[in-house]
Amino acid sequence: MIRTLRILAANPLSLLGLTLVILITLAAIFAPWIAPFPTHNGAVVDFLNNNRPPSSHNWMGTDLVGRDIFSRILFAYQISLTLGVVVLAIAVPIGTMIGLLAGYIGGWLEMVLMRIVDVFLSIPPLVLAIAMMGVLEPTLTNAMLAVTAMWWPWYARLVYSIARGEREEGYVLAAEVIGAGAGHIAFREILPNCLPAIITKMTLDMGFVIIIASSLSFLGLGVQPPTADLGSMVAEGARYLPDSWWLTVFPGLAILVAVFGFNLLGDGLRDVLGVDE
């Protein structure tokens, strides 16, 4: 762990990624304390100060009802990160479990599980999420549900392909000859060899989950106003481009910085952990 971090820090790009991820995480956690206008996360109206360009008072300007955009971005990171963590915390174990079972046990179980995975993978992810959100109410929980539903099959595929290869390794044969159970072989022998790839993909995916979640709320299918969300902030501001550019540009940059940070960190981890694509 320490060693991994040290090698990561030696690469300037990975270090930049790590720094961005840490800064964003700290900003999200401490948003209520560090935001200049902590109340602006919710339904606050200040028409005297609405639609102001960036100034020393409002670093990133104010929105159409006078809320500080910088404060709202900090709070929006809370939503984005929570969504990313929850989605991955559900999707990764499910996908990993299915991939391991299909990859190690094989036979009819492999056929059934991987065909289900194929069906999910054949639906364009955003379309699946939009379809689900069309049926469900547009709330944060349902947005998480929709994104999770489209995310787990990728982990099933990833872990499946690694497990298929590991199954042929001598240490699996050794455990089988000794008579270890399928559970032991799948989770204690094969899973540790899948972890570097899983961790790397999770880091890269945090960025993608944030984009997808922002896309959903951009379309009005995610988190609802007045709660601050990067996607809906971009959507609201888009109508007032290019005059009130700060309404769109700063939330857009916030998405960019988060995705960029997670991608750099993921790339760095891939090199350090020795994962082949």
């Binding site: 001598g170 240490y171 044969l173 050794a174 455990a175 000859v177 000794i178 022998e189 060899n193």
Partner: peptide, 25 residues
Amino acid sequence: IQLVQQNPLSSLNPKRSIGASVRLG
């Protein structure tokens, strides 16, 4: 009836300590 394999690199799990491998039985 136990086995000793040809390739000593692949027959031990790279992610587990050698003690854990010996302990399995």
